[in-house]
């Protein structure tokens, strides 16, 4: 039981993520989380603004069901399958983050400095959530996929477009973490 409650090592987690992809392919579907954002737009009426959103969203109910499951899975994992292990971050990372003003690196999944209700009381806090969300929603659809669709499914099926997209993910991520985050915090 302890091995379930402790964080799982990367060599267990990676193959299990591939199993998610394999199960969905076995069910005749493709692993892709960002396309749900498009479906949610269509359900919200975006088909009146652009033809991009004109499709039968009912064909995507299976994927929204995966999302619902993922939300439930997140709830189960933190409430019933976790001890309070602090994320075993590199000590350099912890020192760096503390010097940037993050109080407790690794004690929670996400920093209070960005995601707490308190952070919402500052313009900076709200702007980070909104700008981050817009970049993710715009970028994934422009690139035609996110980590699940391109990095896992696309690379597993040896597709060159996905390799280009994943290289893009890393260029963007490296720029944000190394050059922009230090300006924000």
């Amino acid at each position: 039981m302890q091995s379930i409650l402790s964080p799982w090592p990367w060599y267990v987690s990676g193959p299990l993520i591939a199993l998610v992809m394999a199960l969905l392919l076995y069910f005749g579907k493709t692993f892709g989380m960002s396309s749900n954002l498009r479906t949610l737009c269509t359900i919200s009426g975006a088909d009146k603004l652009s033809d991009f959103f004109k499709f039968n969203w009912k064909d995507q109910i299976w994927n929204l069901t995966v999302v619902l499951g993922a939300v439930i899975g997140g709830f189960i994992a933190v409430n019933y399958l976790s001890d309070d292990t602090v994320t075993d971050l590199n000590s350099t990372t912890v020192i760096e983050l503390k010097s940037m003003g993050f109080k407790n690196p690794g004690t929670t999944l996400v920093p209070d400095e960005v995601f707490s209700l308190n952070a919402l009381t500052t313009p900076k806090g709200i702007l980070i959530l909104i700008i981050g969300g817009i970049l993710i929603g715009f970028g994934t659809r422009y690139a035609g996929g996110c980590t699940s669709g391109h990095a896992i499914t696309g690379l597993s099926s040896l597709q060159k477009p996905s390799l280009i997209a994943v290289i893009g993910f890393f260029i963007g991520g490296l720029i944000m973490t190394n050059f922009i985050l230090p300006l924000i915090f």
């Binding site: 970049l135 929603g137 035609g144 993910f169 963007g172 922009i180």
Partner: peptide, 13 residues
């Protein structure tokens, strides 16, 4: 380009 834009958001959030 789409990948870079997504990567910026991925690392921010």
């Amino acid at each position: 380009i789409g990948g870079i834009i997504f990567g910026l958001g991925w690392a921010l959030l």
